[in-house]
Design a protein around this nucleic acid. Structure first.
Lengths: 261, 261
DNA sequence: GAGTGGTCTAGACCACCTG
DNA sequence: AGGTGGTCTAGACCACTCC
């Protein structure tokens, strides 16, 4: 009951009944996911405005013909995404968001492509070398063991942006230079059945050496953004170690953090 | 045998029965959280070694006298932390070694987390100024509206590390310089009842101006790491806009990413 | 006191992986 | 075929917030 009360309150009323959620029980897509998607769409479209209360979970589950845990699971996934906030004793409301994508294990290639910058990649080196101490430690190999070294120069609009140096465990992946230049390394890994799970990154800065400056089209001593990353697949096996440098004048890392209680 | 094979290994036996989980139903701490904590402790202590299967959820719930959803909730929280991996039809296993230390991604707090190393803060400026266009946009205010400007120099071991420049909405917070120097801005916000929810960050690099170099003890033109951040509370209201610069020779951002399916 | 989310139970069926 | 996690149900009681 109590949902017909049409009083104008400071925190706007649901108006959620206007939304018709279409749940398909025959679909392979889980019900909670269908609901989450449609809620998210409603938020993005502005049907659910920031600050709006969502209406209580019990009513919602009854109206949708779902159990409360299922509805909760849908809501929780949006809370995890930072779109909703729950307050005990109050309700669930849409966050005032300037939200952008939460930092993903970003491949530079994907970032640039998403920005519509038509990335171009040039494979500079691609050979097998003995692992340096640092590389061996990162990849969990013995020092001097062979690793695949991959060095690429990435540009947009004809201007170099980054120099990417990657080390991969031997035999991990079939690397074809042409495909590497047409797509990104992570994309190739994914299509080779390697599912990335996590990565440890260190982002810093330093001045360009003469050689780096020449390759990137900067002046010697120019500020460079550096990133070192070790990526792991879902078994915890290291699959990539990379040291990347970016022209600070043309690139920066942009991401959103969510604070988890 | 060498583990150069592509397969995830057949995986060791649980040995989980050796663990005695002590669950206190009288505690205000939720059961799933108690279980998660004890599982995590077992993993950190190495009782549950990387690659170990956890034993199936049904058995586990029976042995613990919990329902399966409760056990699942505990496991899920560790999966979210990246400590465990689930595979349908296979089981739940501990992620392999290296990935473990989450090094909490909350870059948000690392000003404070570093507190273990006795950081010192000096409030350089603390006054009310009209908002610049960029500041006004970030904080959702009108240009020229008054904001609190806070400039701090942070050092460790007697060496400057960062120059922190923050802008806060007027009247948000009572700022006492002594407390600001004794603790961090975020800690003061929290104790004032402001719960941080998310932040948007941009990390880049640039060369130090003469003035910046002098303040930070670097040479002019030295590489600096820059961060620009807008932080929001749980209603989506901007509560802080900051532009920070760090000595790249003494500071870098270090974090772990998890890939969410 | 009324309403909200937070937690928990005891089942059930299904999809997937491995042998 | 047997075991695993993935999903879902229909209830229950509690803790918290607000009026």
């Amino acid at each position: 009951m109590a949902k017909t009360g049409d009083r104008a309150r400071p925190a706007a009323e649901p108006a959620l009944s206007a939304l018709d959620f279409a749940l398909d029980r025959g679909s392979p897509v889980p019900l909670y996911h269908q609901l989450a998607q449609q809620l998210e769409a409603a938020i993005q479209r502005g049907v659910l405005a920031p600050g709006n209360l969502l209406g209580n979970e019990v009513d919602l589950s009854v109206r949708l013909g779902l159990s409360r845990p299922t509805v909760r699971q849908a809501i929780q996934s949006l809370v995890d995404k930072g779109l909703l906030v729950r307050r005990r004793g109050v309700g669930t409301q849409v966050v005032h968001s300037r939200v952008r994508r939460p930092l993903e294990l970003s491949s530079l290639y994907d970032d640039l492509e998403a920005a519509g910058q038509g990335p171009a990649t040039l494979v500079v080196r691609h050979e097998t070398v003995p692992a340096s101490p640092g590389t061996a430690a990162a990849l969990g190999l013995a020092e001097g063991e062979e690793v695949v070294l991959l060095e690429r120069l990435r540009s947009t609009h004809g201007q170099p942006v980054a120099l990417l140096c990657n080390y991969l465990p031997p035999g991990l992946l079939e690397l074809d230079d042409d495909r590497l230049e047409a797509t990104g390394l992570y994309r190739m890994m994914r299509s080779a059945g390697i599912t990335l799970h996590s990565a440890r990154q260190t982002v810093g800065a330093r001045s360009a050496t003469a050689q780096e400056a020449a390759r990137l089209g900067e002046r010697e001593g120019a500020a460079l953004l550096t990133m070192e990353r070790t990526a792991y697949d879902d078994t915890g096996r290291p699959v990539e170690f990379g040291t990347h440098i970016y022209r600070a004048s043309r690139y920066s890392f942009d991401f959103q953090l969510l604070v988890r209680p």
